[in-house]
Design a protein around this nucleic acid. Structure first.
Length: 876
DNA sequence: GTAGGGTTAG
């Protein structure tokens, strides 16, 4: 037996005797589905058109006698037969003053039925030229004709003139406005009705509730609900159906359910409203349960049922049921229905069956903008953004104009794979078609620029937006955070609070900014905000908090928060493992990794990067190799350049420089600058100038603009006192017009960030800082620690070198921290580059001398200095 | 003579 429903499987596969055979279809796989009702819009409108055509053929024009005595009777006869062409011909032939009111009415009715606005206008002008008074029944007919044919403006003009008390016309206009999305006008007509005391009916209330649902007006909607109940319309199923849709729209699922439960005569629309309501409120399972009940109760289903159920299938990943419905739809001749095909296409693409989606797309007869958009989204979902872009151009060639959904989808596709140039083309399209006023479009545009790393462009979109919502702010803040512009992120976060109330997503966006600055106090402030607003239950927020504390050096606090996460996901574990790694707790990282696997969570490629880095920061060579092999052999994850870089790093740090070199040469992928860079770092640690030169050439070729690598090689030369080579390299950097990224360190004290650059003497406490550093140096010498001259990097005598060493920014920041913070408080310093060896020595000594912990975060990892030693144990 | 439910998204 085949199971589709997880909840009540046996109900889906009923034995044949339990159902009404004449009303069902049985499939070889055991599925049984009821036939839908025959009511489909397509069939009924076709039927109408066929009748009109028959009218023409039965009464060809030759059979009409030219000597007609009563034109009115003849015209009305043609109208009854639906032959508008002949009716119009006769009107043109007839002596105008003879035409009667009922004749005008009949022709106008037919014009409305056949949606022939030209003929309708012609009749209107005949009426005007004959000076017939437009009032009462004729006025109504004209309004009816214009509104039905889509000329709402002219219909409204006549409506206002004839001052109608007929509820039918009010309803007609209200619905006309609702259909074109002008809910405000529709509702203002409703208010006018109330003022004038026009007697309302169920049509009025259905329309009004639809408008409130669309505009999301909660209080007004509830008010009208109470009003219509008082008037006794609370039991009309058309009214209740629209109330159900209203409550689902404002996400009051329980209220909708209650109305449905209390509704006496439910029809297929009531059921469909419930199913689609559940599906669009993220409760697809409940929607599918109702569908099941519908089948069991033998209630007819129609196209709309199919559409909602297919949408429910794609949300719950119940592809098996979806496929069965697809087969059924074809047999029930829904196979050509555009909406259903769009739904099926979306279902296949969301469930990862791009090929099935393509098949639906290729075979569907009619394609709308929705079909194209779903297909573009489908390719983007699979990471095939190039295909998305291609399809976008193709649809334009086919004459289908992209709408705002298409635009946001194609922007998302560009964002996913960093297609900045294509994204800019879309931006031009947006400008040409004046779509930038749409909030979704502008938000997607900013997101695209942010993901492509172009924050300048993102900001110009942001600043030009007339209306911003919370998504706009979050996108910008998150963009700055991810693009290493934490100060911009924090500034914008402050500005945001004057305009919009932050939500949990804002928190997850701003925390990485605190993390990258190691701004612990700012981070703690935001943590307070999170607690006060109850955002701590959000998974993303909880993970971002742990990450922030880890990167601010508060490992213990981070672990505490990590332990408090009730359901740790892959991200939580990966963050924690990486945290242990950067703090030098390799074995704890390994323990966490194993704990994660024991709890049933399988590592992905990112968690392997974390664990491999943890191994390299603790010098755990064998363990690192173990994880690298586990990844390839047990987890079948193909290593990427980051993983190879970790292994090179591990080998190089352990001193296996030539092995690392051979490893790079044997890699199945082309090594990038990071991989060679890892080996270059190793060359520095083991002072291998010869290999360094060879490696550096690879690096310079791959990333000629990255000054960090030139500086690294310059340092290797300087440490070997090859001053001539240092000079040459400096010249080479100068020729390329490159400037060295200046080293700087910062420390946060009482919420204020103090930044120091190399040789900084601008600080008010500069003298005291210098004094403390000199005192420390003297004490160090007394105890036999001499300055590491090779780190001075300039050719000078020892006194000058000593002075240059003292000027390193991390030393100044540490000394300032010791002077400014109360005794016993941990000094936390962050540096944008790697810590220098001499500073590292001095930090160890200082921690013992002034009896306090110093935590230094450099660009690579954390160093906890305590009682004269460092947590890195030389692995850095 | 009118209506109520149906697909695409940040």
């Amino acid at each position: 037996m085949l199971l589709i429903s997880k909840t009540t499987p046996n109900l889906w596969v009923s034995p044949p005797h339990q159902i009404h055979r004449e009303n069902s279809l049985t499939y070889p796989n055991g599925f049984i589905f009821f036939r839908p009702s025959s009511k489909t819009p397509l069939v009924s409108s076709n039927l109408y058109h066929s009748c009109a055509t028959i009218g023409t053929s039965v009464l060809p024009s030759e059979t009409i006698d030219c000597k007609i005595t009563d034109y009115n009777i003849e015209i009305c006869r043609f109208c009854e037969l639906g032959n508008l062409r002949r009716a119009m011909e006769l009107i043109n032939q007839s002596p105008k003053p003879d035409l009667e009111l009922r004749t005008y009415c009949s022709v106008l009715q037919l014009c409305a039925d056949l949606k022939s606005i030209q003929d309708g206008r012609r009749i209107h002008s005949i009426i005007q030229s004959n000076d017939v008074e437009v009032d009462g029944v004729l006025g109504s007919k004209l309004v009816f004709m214009y509104v039905t044919c889509g000329d709402l403006r002219e219909g409204r003009r006549i409506f206002d003139k004839v001052a109608n008390e007929k509820v039918f016309l009010w309803n007609l206009l209200m619905n006309g406005y609702a259909k074109i999305g002008n809910f405000r006008e529709s509702l203002s007509l409703f208010k006018r009705m109330r003022e004038l005391g026009v007697k309302m009916n169920s049509y009025t209330f259905s329309c009004v509730m639809k408008c409130y649902a669309a505009s999301g007006s909660v209080e007004e909607g509830e008010g009208v609900h109470a009003y219509l109940s008082r008037l006794g319309f609370g039991s009309y199923n058309t009214v209740v159906n629209s109330l159900i849709a209203f409550y689902f729209k404002i996400r009051r699922v329980e209220s909708a359910r209650k109305l449905f439960d209390e509704l006496g005569d439910r029809d297929v629309i009531s059921w469909n409203s419930m199913i689609s309501g559940y599906v669009s409120n993220g409760l697809s399972e409940k929607g599918l349960d109702l569908f099941e009940q519908m089948l069991l109760l033998g209630i007819n289903t129609d196209l709309a049922t199919m559409v909602s159920v297919v949408a429910g299938c794609s949300n719950t990943g119940m592809l098996l049921l979806g496929r069965a419905l697809h087969g059924y739809a074809i047999k029930a001749s829904f196979g050509k229905e555009l909406t259903l095909n769009n739904c099926l296409l979306d279902m296949y693409s969301k469930s990862g069956n791009l090929n099935s989606a393509i098949q639906v797309f290729e075979t569907m007869g009619e394609r709308s903008v929705v079909s194209w958009t779903s297909m573009i989204a489908g390719y983007a979902r699979e990471g095939l953004s190039d295909m998305s872009v291609r399809l976008f151009h193709e649809m334009e060639k086919e004459g289908i104009s992209p709408d705002i959904f298409t635009i946001t989808t194609i922007l998302h596709a560009c964002a996913c794979t960093g297609l900045l140039e294509n994204g800019k083309d879309v931006h031009n399209y947006i400008k040409e078609n004046k779509m930038q006023s749409d909030l979704f479009v502008s938000n997607a545009l900013m997101d695209m620029y942010a993901k492509c790393g172009s924050m300048g462009d993102a900001h110009s979109v942001f600043s030009e937006m007339q209306v911003k919502d919370i998504v706009s702010w979050n996108t910008m803040i998150g963009g700055y955070s991810k693009n290493s512009l934490p100060n911009e992120a924090l500034n914008l976060f402050v500005e945001m609070q004057y305009n919009s109330k932050p939500n949990s997503i804002t928190m997850a966006c701003i925390l990485p900014a605190c993390a990258s600055l190691a701004a612990l106090e700012r981070g703690q402030e935001i943590h307070g905000h999170i607690l006060r607003n109850g955002f701590s239950l959000d998974r993303h927020v909880a993970n971002a908090l742990v990450d922030m504390y880890l990167k601010c050096g508060a490992l213990g606090l981070a672990r505490l928060l990590f332990d408090m996460i009730p359901e740790k996901d892959l991200v939580s574990w990966t963050v924690m493992i990486a945290g242990y790694g950067m703090h030098g707790y390799g074995s704890e990282a390994i323990a966490a990794f194993n704990e994660m696997r024991n709890s049933g969570i399988e590592p992905d490629e990112v968690s392997f990067i974390s664990i491999l880095y943890a191994c390299s920061h603790s010098g755990l060579l064998d363990e690192g190799w173990g994880f690298f092999n586990m990844m390839r052999n047990n987890c079948c994850i193909e290593p990427k350049s980051e993983h190879y870089a970790c292994i090179v790093d591990l080998l190089a740090r352990a001193g296996n420089l030539s092995k690392a070199y051979k490893f790079i040469k044997m890699m199945p992928i082309e090594p990038d600058a990071t991989i060679w860079g890892a080996l270059l770092c190793g060359c520095r640690i083991y002072h291998d100038v010869k290999l360094a030169e060879k490696v550096a050439e690879h690096v310079f070729e791959l990333e000629p603009e990255n000054t960090g690598y030139y500086v690294l090689l310059a340092n290797i030369y300087a440490e070997a006192e090859k001053w001539e080579e240092v000079k040459k390299l400096r010249e080479r950097i100068g020729r390329r017009g490159l400037r060295k990224n200046p080293g700087c360190s910062w420390i946060e004290i009482k919420g204020k960030v103090h930044i120091f650059v190399t040789g900084d003497s601008s600080h008010p406490l500069a003298n005291k800082i210098e004094l403390l550093l000199k005192k420390t140096r003297t004490r160090m010498k007394e105890e036999g620690h001499f300055p590491k001259m090779r780190y001075a990097l300039i050719k000078a005598d020892d006194t000058e070198k000593e002075m240059a060493l003292c000027g390193h920014s991390e030393k100044i920041a540490m000394a300032f921290g010791i002077l400014s913070l109360p005794p016993g408080k941990t000094v936390r310093v962050t540096k944008n580059l790697r810590v220098c060896g001499d500073c590292h020595e001095m930090a160890k000594f200082m921690s013992k001398m002034v009896k306090r912990d110093i935590i230094l975060r450099d660009s690579n990892r954390f160093h906890h200095f305590k009682d004269g030693s460092c947590s890195c144990r030389g692995h850095w």
